[in-house]
Design a binder for these strands. Structure first.
Length: 273
DNA sequence: ATGACTCGTACGACGAGA
């Protein structure tokens, strides 16, 4: 099973790049974030033509998450669900039905695609909302999943797990993505029973998934590793190979994120195909 | 060259991204 995740920063603009990438990377399951499109406008047909079923959770303009699968797509659930207060009042006083989480079962694996709120700055109300969202994710896992079955949470976590994951830790003091509160929230989530699949393969520093569009950051290797695949123990034991595909960050109209892919040994993971 | 921000909304800047 080849599992991949990619923050595409608008599926409307990125569709040709995503189609091209599916054709050469051949993932069995691809999780998308920041589709920035409404469910009714989601391009189902081009993905069907490539052999993928799709599930999407988005309402346009901001956010939006999707799962593409060619190994089955069942038991789709959107958001944290009404029991966890998905529909409620945000800090800004608006309905907080943001489309940031979608789950499905694909080829025997429970797949969750997430787009964690950015946080903006440490003193912004959106920063508190980011920590709250990570807490809700952990609570949702505790009530609706088990660390003993094959489950992967894939997406843009907007947190660089440790100092290896930024190009210069000194420049990130006092900023989001690296603060102790964010890293502790991520570590707490992992303590439920998740491992960072990429780190099982690569211990090195400066292997990034996101680079700012500005100032030639990509070309000068100034980025962060904020896109993660977190897996339960049965999957962690079956991780065979993986890659951040920097080629997808090059060329015309790239996303500012590169896709991350992880290959699992199906038999070792207990995945039914 | 991998190359110096991009996207949605809406038609003029501006909020958001990270």
């Amino acid at each position: 099973m080849r599992l991949a995740t990619w923050n595409v920063n608008s599926l409307k603009v990125r569709l040709p790049r995503v189609e091209e990438w599916l054709a050469y990377a051949q993932p069995d399951v691809l999780c998308l974030q920041e589709t920035k499109i409404a469910d009714a406008a989601f391009p189902t047909m081009p993905f069907a033509a490539l052999g993928y079923e799709v599930a999407h959770h988005g309402d346009g303009r901001w956010n939006g998450v999707a799962i593409l699968s060619r190994v089955g797509l069942e038991h789709v659930t959107e958001g944290f669900g009404p029991a966890a207060g998905e529909v409620g009042v945000s800090l800004a006083g608006e309905v907080a039905a943001e489309r940031r989480l979608l789950a499905a079962t694909c080829g025997g694996m429970r797949v969750v695609t997430v787009y964690v709120p950015n946080g903006r700055s440490l003193d912004h109300e959106q920063f508190a909302a980011k920590l709250d969202w990570l807490g809700r994710l952990q609570a949702w896992l505790a009530t609706s999943a088990s660390p003993d079955v094959p489950l992967a949470i894939c997406g843009d976590f907007n947190v660089a797990p440790d100092d290896r994951d930024v190009y210069d830790p000194r420049l990130y003091v006092g900023t989001t993505h690296t603060s102790p509160a964010e890293r502790e929230a991520l570590a707490s989530l992992e303590s439920w029973g998740l491992e960072d699949a990429f780190r099982l393969l690569y211990p090195q520093d400066r292997l990034f998934t996101w680079w700012d569009y500005r100032a030639g950051d990509f070309h000068n290797h100034r980025g962060m590793r904020i896109d993660l695949v977190l897996v339960t123990r049965p999957l962690a034991a079956a991780v065979r190979w993986g890659l951040i595909d920097r080629n997808a960050r090059k060329g015309k109209q790239p996303s500012d994120h590169a896709p991350l892919l992880i290959d699992f040994d199906d038999r070792m993971a207990g995945l039914g195909r």
